[in-house]
Design a binder for these strands. Structure first.
Lengths: 223, 223
DNA sequence: TTTCCCCTCCCCCGCGAGAGGGAGAAACGT
DNA sequence: ACGTTTCTCCCTCTCGCGGGGGAGGGGAAA
């Protein structure tokens, strides 16, 4: 009984490499590979794979939204999320959605294949470096970032959703070019958003924005 | 640089088998093996191993209590918990105590050795079948929180006092000119220090330095 | 339909930042 | 005495950042 796998990633090379790796495994079969989240949701509904491997960063619909859509549909398809960035915020959304895996792309091929098999049998695997963050959080206590305690400063409400997203990207230390790549827009666009964020929040430069984000608990304060 | 390991388990045969397995690994060294939790706590304090592998079920003091004792002592010793029973209640206590691993005894030898290495480098590994329960709980509604870690940043020791001072100034969002004024030195001097700080800490720019400072709790929470 | 907001992208321009050199003067331990 | 480390200051050069404009498209409200 082979495990039917679907892959969604926006990098063509990555997908072809992934397919090649799967072909060497007698128990794994890649039924489709797509380049964005929307296509992933559609193809999963059509082909009903056992496991879907989704990149977090994708055009049109990101992996998290796609995972939530698939998992709430009750199709029984297991989800393994992939990311090049060990964003722990993503882990929580993924876990809350019921994902069966959260792995870094830097993970060795055989380990990733193992993660797929683990997901297929109903278990779950989280990348060790991500697990560490999880443990740190657990040992620190509880309470979701969205709930209790901290009140959002009124100035934040003046930001558009996109601008808030940009603010978080800035706070993670990314350059304009990096933000552009990660959000699939041009660098000029990013510069415009950054400029608006700084103006609306009355900040001098992106460094002040980083400090602003930390002081206002927009970022979890833990390594 | 070998990883120094301590084992605590109440089965004599298991301990000897564990020692044998470690002897085949050039990077792992078993500094002691004990048969109960109380002895584990005492020997960990005396021998200061890098990683302690503790069985959950032990006489006198169980592995969880021992783990909590060791982890709260701030010795820096990492804890990997072992159990034959995948009780998720144990996992939660272990994670809340700050354990770096939670593995089943049924785990293959090489994977357990891998878990020790993972723990030694500061990451964490949870057995996949246990992770699955974790995910179930997460998706059921639990949520974590902002954390506070007590971690000694080793790279900081490579900085001179002046450079540490500069790092704090950077983290406060000051420009080179402002730092110069504040510290009564020339801006060129500041630029030199900043450059050294970035080089020594392996950071790309001052923005990463700000993030570094926050993540390593170099700044008191001010808001 | 018109108006407004949001997102997207483009231009030029000035400036601070950081790299990559070098160099002098203390203070330190030997 | 000596070398090492630290702190100080200087140069040039490149590049990213941010401000100042403008502009088009789409969606939602009026």
């Amino acid at each position: 009984m082979t495990i039917r796998v679907l892959l969604a990633d926006d990098h063509e090379f990555y997908r072809s490499g992934f397919r090649s790796a799967l072909e060497t495994q007698p128990d794994l079969e890649c039924v489709a590979d797509v380049g964005d989240g929307l296509a992933a949701v559609r193809e999963i509904a059509r082909l009903r794979p056992d496991v879907a491997v989704l990149d977090v960063r994708m055009p049109r619909m990101d992996g998290l939204a796609a995972a939530e859509s698939v998992l709430s549909s009750g199709s029984g398809c297991k989800i393994v999320l992939l990311t090049t960035y060990d964003e722990d915020g993503y882990v929580y959304r993924a876990l809350q959605a019921g994902a069966s895996g959260f792995c870094l792309k830097s993970m060795p091929t055989d380990e990733l294949l193992g993660a797929i098999r683990i997901a297929a049998r109903g278990d779950a695997l989280i990348d060790p470096s991500v697990t560490r963050r999880l443990v740190t959080r657990f040992s620190a206590g509880l309470a979701p970032a969205s709930a209790s305690a901290t009140r959002p400063p009124a100035a934040l409400d003046r930001l558009t959703p996109r601008e808030r997203e940009i603010l978080l990207e800035i706070a993670r230390g990314r350059s304009n070019a990096e933000i552009a790549t990660h959000l699939f827009v041009g660098e000029q666009t990013v510069k415009t958003h950054v400029s608006h964020v700084l103006t609306k929040l009355g900040l001098r430069d992106r460094i002040q924005a980083v400090i602003y984000a930390y002081e206002n608990a927009l970022l979890p304060r833990s390594p």
